[in-house]
């Protein structure tokens, strides 16, 4: 009995310790921002590998999600004769929710796991130690540029996701199902609010960008430096990111749209 309690306590303490290490790392990364001002090319290189290389998966997913939204929305709305509102429905659900959330989930799977594996392997092959011994701070030189690349890429990717999603919705509803084109666009333009919908969506994706990249970098940096450790860390990145994104999405939605 006592032993079980002790084990529970130990697990709790270890988890708290890990959380503390994670926050310390985040602070160190934020302090490392100066390095990016000094060497902007580091950030640009990472924007490419974190952001640009994610464009394809995010774009294609956005297109299909939008097409599915068009189809499903049409079946529901046509029952009430409100097909003209299809544009609003597609755009609102993409900009407010699906854009930031699905992009963050895709980002965690595509870029987050790659970041964790990269950092974890750099640790396992002593590259991080090597940098430290060359008097180069790996947090500033390696982690900080990746962190800001993730932070900046996420809203851009989410915007791309939403834009292609709306295009997908348009193709299906106007092209395939014969919804009136003018009504599709004009209702969307009329109902979608810059502050209420778009800004809130951008804020969400900025938050998800911070959280997903932070989780990915911390898992890599804190990984047990063996092949098994790195593979576990990569899995944890995807799982933790998914939980964090979905949980935070609820909190943020309640704060933004709850009256």
């Amino acid at each position: 009995m006592i032993e079980q309690l002790a084990r529970l306590g130990r697990t709790g303490l270890l988890a708290l310790e890990r959380l503390g290490r994670g926050h310390l790392l985040l602070l160190a990364i934020l302090k490392g921002m100066t390095e990016i001002v000094r060497r902007p090319f580091l950030l640009i290189a990472q924007m490419f590998s974190v952001g640009v290389l994610s464009i394809l998966i995010v774009g294609i997913s956005g297109l299909f999600v939008g097409m599915v939204l068009g189809l499903q929305g049409y079946y529901v709305l046509s029952q009430f004769g409100a097909e003209e509102s299809l544009g609003v429905m597609v755009a609102a659900s993409l900009v407010r929710e699906l854009g930031p959330v699905v992009t963050a989930l895709l980002f965690a799977g595509r870029a987050g796991s790659a970041l964790t594996a990269e950092i974890g392997l750099m640790k396992a092959t002593e590259q991080l130690s090597g940098l430290e011994m060359m008097a180069v701070d790996p947090v500033k030189r390696i982690l900080a540029p990746r962190f800001f690349a993730g932070f900046l890429s996420m809203p851009l990717l989410a915007a791309l996701f939403s834009a292609l999603g709306i295009l997908g919705g348009y193709l299906v509803s106007v092209g395939l199902l014969g919804v009136d084109e003018g009504a599709f666009w004009s209702q969307m333009q009329h109902k979608i609010d810059l502050h209420e919908d778009i800004y809130n969506g951008v804020i969400k994706s900025l938050v998800f960008g911070v959280v997903c990249t932070w989780i990915a970098l911390f898992q890599g940096y804190d990984a047990v430096p063996t092949s098994e450790g790195v593979s576990r860390a990569t899995t944890r990145t995807v799982v933790h990111s998914a939980f964090a994104v979905l949980g935070l999405d609820f909190v943020l939605t309640a704060l933004m749209f709850g009256d």
Partner: peptide, 30 residues
Amino acid sequence: RIRMGMMFQSGALLTDIDVFENVAYPLREH
């Protein structure tokens, strides 16, 4: 540490840059 060199067992070379850039790395940094 700038005045201490270390040769790791694995070499610990940065894998994303070539040999020249690896050796140039500390010079460029410091």
